[in-house]
Nucleic acid binder design. Structure first.
Lengths: 197, 197
DNA sequence: ACCTCATCGAACCGATCAGTACCATGTGTG
DNA sequence: CACACATGGTACTGATCGGTTCGATGAGGT
């Protein structure tokens, strides 16, 4: 038997439960805004169990951010894939997905970026940098598919629109969703970056 | 005599010194990363003096962010003004100024945005929102001057490039400065937003 | 000379923090 | 049944936190 089959006393399951609760708590209250004891009471887990699984609070933070980056990256790539082969459609789908995310109740910006701005040292910045690299790769795929003159440059410009719209949606009050304007800007940049027609 | 003229025992001067040291410390280590006692030792000031001037740590944070927003807003507007009347020149000058800022040693992103992502409650978010409003107003002036179809929409798109390039410069490793790519994107969006030529 | 006021330095408070240790409990496996 | 193990609960440590208080010092204006 490769994996455990029991339901209750399963280390992997407790680990996942801690991870899930910590992800939400850190996102809502900040990395420094929630203590380990608080996290334990949210999950119904003892401190000893938490420390046995993650070693330290920083270890937990790193695991949370890593898992979050994986999940968000998969989600955004799936949104692009669901739009079919046309690069403009794929790009539009990315920003439509962002718009949906920004409108969710409890939205507080990108968890990875937020974490990196809170902890200048430690693993947060490295994980956030890799996260942005993943986003960049997705956008660069679209730019290349569209036949852009310099896909790397276009992708970096599009990434700024992704990050910028997320910041705006979090911090800037506005009647219209920021991602909708970002979407139009992205399509304009895409069209301007393909040499011929 | 309307104001004090002495140099040493001047409340306004001590207040400014605290503000200056706190601005740097909060920027470098985060709002929660530096304690009040630590701040006092940096300035050579006693806790009693600090609390007499600012009432609480939150009061100090609010004063720091307010002053920072004023200073940054004036600085960015001055950069635009130094570029002359042409809207494209003014927009380019804004991103050139950003590029210079992003390249400064110790650059860690926008202090206002960072503060707002660290403290979801309290004055930080409100001050940051007003700060983004000021930036938006500057960009909207340029958009209007250029005769854009919808200056408000263009300004919000440009603001995303400003915020997005600042985030990228802080968190994303890259050989070329993000603001240079943002500058070209901004000029492209500006050109595409003016109806006739 | 006098008084006021800003200030420093230090002690102090209660709360909270990350992290550790110990013990009782329950589950799964042999 | 017996053993190993993951766990919850509780108590504890040493440090740091924001904030308050008190007394000594010294400068400025009258």
């Amino acid at each position: 038997m490769p994996v455990a089959k029991g339901t209750s006393l399963d280390p992997a399951r407790t680990r996942a439960a801690i991870l899930e609760a910590a992800t939400a708590a850190f996102y809502d209250h900040g990395l420094d805004g929630v203590g380990v004891a608080n996290l334990c009471s949210r999950t119904g887990v003892s401190k000893e169990t938490l420390y046995r699984h993650f070693g330290s609070k920083q270890g937990l933070i790193e695991a949370v951010l890593e898992a979050r980056s994986d999940k968000v990256t998969r989600w955004l790539r799936a949104a692009a894939d669901s739009a079919g082969p046309d690069p403009a459609d794929r790009l539009a789908a990315v920003f439509d997905a962002l718009a949906g995310w920004h409108g969710e109740p409890g939205f507080r910006g990108c968890a990875l970026v937020n974490a990196a701005t809170q902890h200048h040292e430690g693993p947060a910045r490295a994980v956030a940098a890799r996260h942005l690299d993943r986003r960049l790769a997705l956008l660069e795929d679209i730019a290349t598919l569209a036949g852009a003159r310099d896909p790397g440059v276009l992708a970096r410009q599009l990434l700024m629109l992704v990050s910028g719209s997320t910041t705006a949606a979090d911090l800037h009050p506005g009647s219209e969703p920021a991602a909708r304007h970002a979407r139009e800007a992205a399509l304009t940049l895409l069209a301007a970056a393909v040499p011929a027609r």
